[in-house]
Design a protein around this nucleic acid. Structure first.
Lengths: 242, 242
DNA sequence: GAGCCGACTTGATCCAGATCAAAGTTCCCT
DNA sequence: AGGGAACTTTGATCTGGATCAAGTCGGCTC
């Protein structure tokens, strides 16, 4: 019952079938995509594409996590997106890539050659409609992140980050309330616009305050969801009095 | 020869005809939009829509400048976008708005009622294709801004901001190299994730260093474009040795 | 043209988070 | 089982930008 990443595998049972750019496609359209796709796997840590590289393929991320980031000449790095399964890589109409894409864990991509795919986008409205939806969702997420980067304190940043993981219900490993940090302290720092030392200190502080609890470096439990939410700074909306 | 913002005016001669969501539309599709549109004008400073408000209309910004922002409960405000002519307001598929939209100057919108417009997006691929392009462009811009907010120094932020104005060739008022600041110091601060005092100090500093020159508070000239570019921090790419 | 208000500048001080510097930990790898 | 290397924590100190606090400038009203 597992899906094997092989070109002859049918798209119908693909794990991201209903969330990726093909989500709105019907069977016929899916067949077109099936004829074009190829899979590629990257080990954790490997670069997938570098800023400025020629974009030979578009791709959907099928499994794993990748990061989208930009590094200034002096080494300062800012992550601008976390790519999760079903997220799309590439910009129809552009020849090159604007940001560095790096595999955070082992990553598998479902790829399409640039020209044929661009033609398909013109011909199959279900694809551009879905890509518009996805781009608009990401735009909203990027803007929320801008608020975080521009105006939140270190503690609020980390609390927001943990809350995001919890909300996405990332890998409830064993018991329902055990979550995994998908990134190292340094990667979290690059995501939040902080230094790794500050990440470490703030995590310790949240632990001291009884908000979270660490099983090991990468696994945590929430001891006080309400306190976490309060610490995130973006109250106002879902006060969620459970 | 001026375009009057009147519902009976033809879209064909609209100032944003070739850049807005209708850019790819042919004459017939344009006629559909013509039948649906209505214009609305807001004075400078007026709120256009507030976060959480019901989205009754989608709109294209036809003239003027608007801001997209979020304010935390304690008053900290972060601007997350500047809307210029041809930019779109609203998210098909969503009932409410995620950010506050405010008129910075006098603003005129070309509006479409939500339901009929959503139906049109489903039926006219040229619209979703164009909206996808526009959303992806904005996404790239938002991500570049994330790098600025997360990793740049105050000086780099302002230099980047001025460079952006210069690059867009905003209102070369009289002589070719005179530019206008579209925002107050406080608005710039909210855009860059700084305080208005820091904006003021950094502008003074760039002036002292002979990079820019002020005609008055809102108008400036670039005295050393190369120095401005160097100060922006994102070299690497277009070193543009003119 | 006096008086006022909003936008801006400048100065003094403070502090959150950066930076510099050691120690721990954990997990490979041989 | 031992020796690193990578990751993480913790401590001491520094600093860029925030905050607090006067002023200044320019346009507008009466």
């Amino acid at each position: 019952m597992t899906f094997v990443f092989n070109e002859r595998e049918k798209c119908g049972s693909c794990p991201i079938r209903h969330r990726a750019i093909c989500a709105r496609c019907d069977e016929d359209e899916l067949t077109l995509l099936e004829g074009m796709k190829s899979y590629q796997t990257f080990e954790a840590g490997q670069p997938i594409i570098w800023r400025g590289d020629d974009l030979t393929h578009f791709a959907s991320l099928v499994s794993g996590i990748a990061s989208l980031s930009r590094t200034l000449e002096d080494g300062r790095t800012q992550m601008v997106g976390l790519l999760l399964p079903s997220d799309f890589i590439g910009r129809p109409g552009r020849e090159t890539v604007d940001f560095d894409v790096t595999a955070v864990t082992e990553v598998t991509l479902c790829r399409f050659q640039r020209r044929p795919f661009e033609d398909l986008v013109e011909r199959v409205p279900h694809i551009s409609q879905r890509m518009m939806e996805m781009a608009l969702d990401e735009l909203t997420a990027a803007r929320e992140w801008m608020v975080l980067l521009g105006r939140k304190t270190a503690r609020e940043k980390i609390a927001t980050f943990l809350e995001m993981i919890v909300r996405r219900e990332t890998v409830p490993t064993q018991s329902i309330q055990e979550y995994q940090l998908p990134l190292t302290r340094e990667e979290i720092a690059n995501f939040l616009g902080l230094t790794l030392e500050t990440i470490s200190r703030q995590l310790t502080s949240l632990k001291k305050d009884g908000v979270v609890e660490f099983i090991d470096r990468r696994h945590f439990r929430i001891k006080d969801l309400n306190a976490l939410h309060l610490a995130s700074g973006d109250d106002a909306d879902g006060g969620v009095i459970v």
